[in-house]
Nucleic acid binder design. Structure first.
Lengths: 142, 142
DNA sequence: ATAATAAAGGACAAATTTGTCTTCTATTAA
DNA sequence: TTAATAGAAGACAAATTTGTCCTTTATTAT
């Protein structure tokens, strides 16, 4: 697994919220967890942190729910960083603290471009792309 | 983190054992954990599983310890597979079970070559390379 | 045979991740 | 202003990963 379970849920939930947001709709946590096939309460926690980190927005009360304001600027990398942090892109494969460009472990040279590529792909992937593919039925969220 | 802590320890321990094995020496668990800066008992468990999976060999009793027989054929990928399994190279980024080449998630096309590249680098990296770099002082195991 | 050595194995414990449940707070509408 | 709705927040629990400790088993040398 490249990403944590929390991060997978976070991405799928955000895509679903983004999709509904395009149609000016807010979605409740029940609808979200049902749509992406994830545990309801756990997903609520994850969305909570996404809201706290300004990835998503939410409103309480009737006609409330989750929605997306920054739908253009939001990219996959934002969600990954918010839930899993930056470790995937920087921490040494062997777990050596000293490892760096100037003091590389024996895998550093080989792994760095791969990680950079992953970072690039994640950075260049807008959530709107996920929404488009979802709505044209190219894949399902669970 | 790309690899689990167990896997990081497994790699570093194997490199240390391989290094000593080249000099026809066996090493005890104390020496190993001291050399790589890992918890002794936990490392013992990890080496146990590596022995069970025929990555390393071991001998009990005085003058016993861990050693490496297949030092030429052993590659990084073998240790990664033995401890973390194959998930890093196959499981969907979004955690979708349906995801595959024929039914790809929106990141599949982008991530696949990256994972394949990682697999290739891991597969083409013999442990003897780690040993060589270690002995020429290019890096340290903790 | 016996003692010493060192890995194997099992039970247990801490930490982290994943997941649940209940109560609190804010918002809306009647 | 009250009732209903829905997210926020906190305490708790299960599962997994990481880590410890103690006993057993195998080997070697005396």
């Amino acid at each position: 697994m490249i990403l944590s379970k929390s991060c997978e849920y976070a991405i799928r939930a955000s895509v679903f919220v983004a999709s509904k947001s395009q149609k000016k709709q807010r979605v409740g946590i029940n609808e979200v967890s049902e749509a992406i096939g994830s545990p309801r309460a756990f997903t609520a926690k994850i969305l909570q942190t996404l809201v706290r980190k300004n990835i998503l927005s939410s409103a309480k009360g009737p006609a409330g729910g989750f929605y997306l304001e920054r739908s253009d600027s939001l990219h996959l990398i934002d969600i990954v960083r918010a839930t899993d942090g930056n470790g995937l892109f920087i921490s040494c494969v062997l777990g050596l603290r000293a490892c760096s460009d100037t003091q590389p472990c024996p895998m550093h040279k080989q792994v760095k471009p791969i990680r950079d590529q992953l970072l690039t792909e994640f950075s260049n992937k807008p959530i709107s792309d996920f929404v488009a593919d979802l709505e044209s039925g190219k894949y399902h969220l669970k």
